[in-house]
Design a protein around this nucleic acid. Structure first.
Lengths: 235, 235
DNA sequence: TCCTGTGAATTCGTTCACAGCC
DNA sequence: GGCTGTGAACGAATTCACAGGA
């Protein structure tokens, strides 16, 4: 029963399954059960079966799924049967690393242009490409049929550059800046914030330490017991 | 009503709020309503109020929240009132970029060590630190009281290095490799996969293109109509 | 009047459990 | 016997809507 409208949570997992399946195919596995794939992808098997049921009935009862066929179907669903051209804007530390990251091209994302706002960087060769100026973004987008922009500029200019990307016709942005972007309707933004991830880890790390000291009976002083809290404003 | 056990979804949003609040404090704002903060953080205001209600009743009815006080409370909740020492393992492109990323130190994450498996890299100076060998990870973790590891090694050695990190006493891992890691109970892993993010964008991009061609009546050929699908194995 | 805090209603996502097919 | 596909049960997260305090 291949119903349209795949849940977001499922979409976000498809690339994970795809990665696991490609690994398996490379190791010569031709058939996989939801249990085996679940183990490889780090989820449980019910989730796998439910997720796949949104795509259609691609398995065989009593047997499992055909690895190559699944790879094909998931790739198609994710739009990976076509190549996408990508522009990276902001060729600092991170932009450099992204430009040199092989994983993109491997999965059908062609880095078509590198742009920066800084005249000093323009003309530099990075990852085999000449860095252009953001002012020319529209020309690049048109000529190279670019639909995805990767934003790795300083926070201060993030919104401005995003506006220019949208104006030039880009409809998907991968935002590495810490700014929340405002974009026109019809543009998809995904955010990757490295220090947010660390802060989430910090939360669980702290909680673990707190629990441990309760369990072990250690009177490990919380910093906030030392550092007196600012008095609350009202209540 | 400050109940314990904050929902995961809320924890993941706290750093976003924190960032918005710090920006506001820097711009001299002292009080903020859930509406205003919602706009700045890119969520809706009900969510803000509900999220904050898990931390306690820190607002004032009819007025809003005290920015500095909120910053203090969220920081405390996230465990950011203390500094955390971090090790980056794998000093390739990405490791380099991460080592030079200022945002970590700014938020209380001290990069205490850079390690690599490659003898060629050991001894190199990156971001002011000398790259050490992973074999010495245990010593570094003990001496520097490191609890968080950032994994930026090649996929092939990811699990092996993760094992060594866990063995040496690290309890949180930020995993930049495409591998699903198996870790002992009590270790928290968060995954950042750059090409997964692009693949998710690709899904929505493709869907948009498909919808558009229906709306506009364009007979834009899908690639999979050209490329005949592998025949299904069973059903 | 304004804006928080929160139960209640709703939506979304996960897991269970088993019928159906190999 | 083994494994998929899926309704039904459950649980988590979001949103509504309004009582209540400044």
């Amino acid at each position: 029963m291949a119903s349209r409208q795949i849940p977001e949570a499922t979409v976000a997992r498809l690339p994970v399954y795809l990665r696991a399946l490609v690994d398996m195919a490379e190791r010569g596995t031709h058939t996989v059960s939801s249990d085996a794939l679940a183990a490889a992808a780090g989820v449980n098997s019910a989730k796998i079966r439910k997720d796949f049921s949104y795509l259609g009935s691609y398995g065989t009862r009593g047997v499992g799924y055909d690895v190559d066929y699944l790879i094909h179907q998931i790739s198609r669903e994710l739009g990976l049967t076509q190549d996408w051209s990508v522009v990276i804007v902001g060729i600092g530390n991170l932009g450099h690393a992204l430009a040199n990251y092989g994983g993109f091209a491997e999965r059908g994302f062609r880095i078509a242009a590198l742009l920066d706002t800084d005249d000093g960087k323009v003309g530099e060769i990075v990852a085999g490409l000449e860095v252009g100026h953001v002012d020319d973004v529209e020309r690049w987008v048109k000529e190279e049929d670019i639909s995805i922009g990767i934003l790795a500029v300083p926070a201060a200019v993030a919104q401005d550059v995003a506006d220019r990307l949208c104006a030039s016709g880009i409809t998907s942005i991968l935002n590495f800046t810490p700014r929340v972007l405002t974009v026109p309707e019809g543009v998809t933004v995904r955010k990757v914030d490295l220090s947010i991830e660390l802060q989430i880890l910090s939360f669980y790390e702290q909680r673990r330490v707190a629990e441990e000291s309760v369990r072990v009976g250690t009177a490990r002083r919380r910093l906030d017991a030392v550092d007196p809290p600012v008095p609350p404003p009202g209540p």
